[in-house]
Design a protein around this nucleic acid. Structure first.
Length: 762
DNA sequence: CTTGTAGTCCGAGGGTAAAC
DNA sequence: GTTTACCCTCGGACTACAAG
């Protein structure tokens, strides 16, 4: 709406401009502002009204829920059940949540039967602690969301869905509240797992709020999938349906009528899957065997393996703008708000520490001068054309809306404001985070047996749904295995390597982070550091289990255990980073060899990452050709402290391994720093200092070709010098005979001189 | 005891505009 | 033409706590 409004404004502005009638413009602008103000006011009022309405409804619902046993008698309930067994949108507000229930843990024996009486009448009064959940739609009612009352022909799937209470923007009909899981997914009772997954994918994409659906419907779809995709839960649910002679799942519906949501299968998904599996396997195996394994790989897989770093880097910000292969200065698309006729030029820094980066200048049509900011351009443009102040103000306001000025004057109200249930719907399985620019990012979080698995963020909902399907499957597999293993004693692994490989094979774009969250006795929220390495996560999980099972744990012992875990994560991250670098070298070597013997075309991007990923995930410029300096594991492996010399690339410079940094950060009850009494900020500083020193050392090492230890010493000494002094000494080194502190360094002086005089990285 | 999830904190990256 | 300070967004890792 805002965009439309902005466009409309722009059109009006242009019109006004072409007329060159200052007075008329002034009036119009004033009118526009007035109108805009009115619209905003009306909009705000509408929102307020909506919120009030929802609050009212929920309050009413809650009150009714609380006083139900007292107020409603059995006849009323029976009447209601008979009159409106479907309980769709037209159902009374008070009954709205009474049927949207998901309670798979309840054993079937305890479920209420297929009585025509609404079970709410027998429910105990809701306690205050239960109120919150109830607002979200969990009510103490029959399990599995079965329809209340006897199934009638009207409750069958053949009946058209009830008319929505409020028309949805996308015109998507809402799912009837009381339909069973099969009907919600639109599948028949005999549907196999593949059909269930397909249906879940379709319905999830259809009902997600971001696709114009309703949050509650989406929630129901997730609930239905969770039950039907789990064999034991599904069996219990089917038994329940049989006992109640329910028609849920007797007819497939809607799916036939609706166009299938196109599968967003990446072209080379299988190739990527194989590459991920090989990657996982190689890292676990002996380095000496890598060359042999790589030789046996198909070329596409090998190339995918070489491109994996970009998958790991996905979503992570990189210092971009390096456009070495393009011509500068060049004209680029002018940003919104720049007056018409102005040019937006991009220039390249040729020297200095920003060399290679670009900057923007705006050029006026009369070609006198460039400007750096859009407001400056607007003002200059207005001066030049003698435009009325009102128009200038309108344009400035528009510029402010898109730029930082907005934040200075009108701080974003949405940030750091507690989201109430009214503002934010309950999330489940797939989580959404909307940025200030209204861009949604999705991620998946699944827990079982204290174990927690979560994904990176993705901008593709379809991808998130696929991830959710895959992780849910892995969860089910793991849980069944754990049940068997538990009976044998010991602490079973929450996820095995094989299960992880299966998971990654099915969804190769998955990058998972593992952590655990325990609670024992009076001590709650014992959390472990998170890691991307499964083996580390499992080891930590088991060590915590072991400690907690001893029953002799104290806050202190838990803290110590966590500290050990943090160190373990940090060490393992380093170890992996080293292995990754070696692997990357080996892969590149093999690729080079194949290109040399003509097995592969010379184009290094013939299997570009775009083909390996969801189309909308990333912009093409994010896929820069793989340079020799990129880290394979993203920032978790990218800490300069942890890098091999060849990894001291641009992208790695500032990124500490998140887990190690977090481990060092260690806030909270069981955090490392708070536990040991060490200041987390000082430890952070220490890490940062060390990193900077080592980074400088690596740069020096790269420039001089000297030993790392010497370079580190030199870097630390150099950093201690004032800037002016450093410059002076460097100049004198260049001019005079160089006498450097160690033989290793002095041996490399010619190289250093060459590089420095050539304006290189030295 | 187990799971779900809202909220906080932090650092990296990037845009903007003033200063050099 | 280049550097720098400042500010904001975003992703990620917790952290706390409520519900089941």
């Amino acid at each position: 709406k805002k965009e439309e409004k902005a466009e409309a404004e722009e059109k009006k502005e242009e019109k006004a401009e072409s007329e060159h009638k200052a007075e008329a413009e002034e009036k119009k602008a004033a009118k526009e502002e007035d109108k805009e103000g009115k619209e905003e006011k009306a909009h705000a009022e509408q929102e307020k009204k909506d919120v009030h309405q929802e609050e009212k409804e929920e309050k009413k619902e809650t009150e009714e829920g609380e006083r139900e046993p007292a107020v409603r008698n059995e006849n009323e309930c029976a009447d209601e059940a008979e009159a409106n067994p479907e309980e769709g949108e037209s159902a009374p507000v008070g009954s709205e949540f009474a049927v949207e229930v998901y309670k798979p843990e309840t054993p079937p024996e305890e479920l209420p039967g297929a009585s025509s009486e609404a079970p709410t009448a027998a429910e105990p009064a809701e306690t205050p602690v239960r109120k919150r959940r109830r607002l979200f739609g969990k009510a103490p009612c029959s399990a599995f969301g079965l329809p209340q009352g006897p199934p009638t022909s009207s409750s069958s799937s053949s009946a058209p869905p009830p008319a929505p209470e409020r028309p949805l923007s996308a015109g998507i009909p809402r799912i009837a509240r009381s339909r069973g899981h099969y009907d919600i997914l639109g599948i028949v009772r005999s549907a196999d797992l593949t059909a269930i997954r397909k249906a879940y994918r379709r319905q999830a994409l259809r009902t997600h709020p971001d696709k114009g659906g309703d949050a509650k419907d989406f929630h129901r779809v997730i609930g239905a999938f969770e039950v039907l995709s789990d064999r034991s839960k599904r069996a219990a649910y089917d038994a329940q349906l049989d006992r109640q002679d329910c028609r849920d799942g007797q007819q497939a519906q809607e799916a036939v009528d609706e166009p299938e949501v196109p599968e967003e299968q990446p072209i080379a998904k299988d190739v990527l899957a194989e590459a991920r599996v090989v990657h996982l396997s190689l890292l676990e195996s002996d380095i000496a065997t890598w060359a042999e394994v790589l030789k046996k790989l198909n070329s596409p897989v090998l190339e995918a393996l070489a491109n994996l770093p970009q998958l790991f880097e996905a979503g992570r910000k990189k210092r971009g703008c390096r456009e070495e292969h393009k011509e500068f200065p060049r004209e680029i698309q002018p940003p919104e708000g720049l007056p018409s006729g102005w040019k937006c030029m991009e220039y390249l820094y040729h020297s200095g520490k920003c060399a290679g980066l670009t900057y923007i200048r705006y050029h006026s049509p009369w070609g006198k001068k460039w400007f750096q900011s859009i407001p400056a351009c607007i003002k200059a443009d207005a001066d030049h054309r003698n435009l009325p102040q009102a128009l200038v103000n309108a344009r400035l306001a528009k510029a402010r809306r898109r730029g930082a000025l907005l934040k200075k004057e009108e701080p974003e109200p949405e940030r750091n404001v507690k989201a109430t249930p009214h503002q934010k719907p309950l999330q489940r399985g797939i989580y959404t985070q909307r940025s200030a620019a209204n861009v949604s990012k999705y991620w998946v979080n699944v827990n079982w047996s204290y174990f927690r698995v979560y994904t990176r963020r993705t901008s593709s909902l379809a991808e998130a749904v696929d991830w959710h399907i895959a992780i849910s499957h892995a969860k089910e597999m793991a849980q069944s295995r754990m049940r068997v293993e538990q009976s044998n004693g010991g602490v079973p692994s929450p996820l095995t390597r094989k299960e992880l490989i299966d998971l990654v094979s099915s969804e190769p774009s998955l990058i998972l982070t593992f952590s655990s969250n325990f609670s024992r006795g009076a001590i709650h929220n014992i959390y472990t550091p998170s890691t991307e390495d499964l083996q580390t996560a499992v080891t930590i999980y088991q060590s915590f289990h072991h400690l907690l099972d001893q029953q002799r744990f104290t806050t202190c012992t838990i803290r110590e255990e966590r500290q050990r875990a943090c160190v373990m994560v940090s060490d393992r991250t380093q170890e992996l980073a080293d292995s990754q670098a070696v692997l990357r070298e080996a892969v590149h070597k093999e690729l080079k060899h194949r290109r040399a013997i003509g097995e592969l075309p010379d184009d290094p991007n013939c299997n570009s990452p775009e083909k390996l990923r969801y189309p909308e995930r990333r912009t093409p410029q994010e896929f820069a050709p793989l340079s020799g300096k990129e880290s394979l594991l993203g920032d978790k492996a990218g800490d300069a402290v942890l890098l091999l010399p060849s990894e001291a690339g641009e992208g790695d410079k500032a990124s500490a391994p998140a887990s190690a940094a977090s481990a060092a950060r260690g806030r909270g009850v069981f955090g490392v720093a708070s536990g040991t009494g060490a200041s987390s900020s000082s430890s952070r500083r220490a890490i940062k200092d060390k990193r900077t020193t080592v980074q400088v050392a690596l740069d020096l090492q790269d420039a001089l070709g000297c030993d790392r230890k010497d370079a580190t010493v030199l870097a630390a000494a150099a950093r201690a010098l004032p800037r002016g002094e450093l410059k002076r000494r460097l100049a004198s080194l260049l001019e005079a005979d160089l006498s450097l502190p160690t033989p290793a360094l002095s041996g490399s002086v010619p190289a250093m001189r060459r590089r420095l005089t050539a304006g290189g990285s030295g």
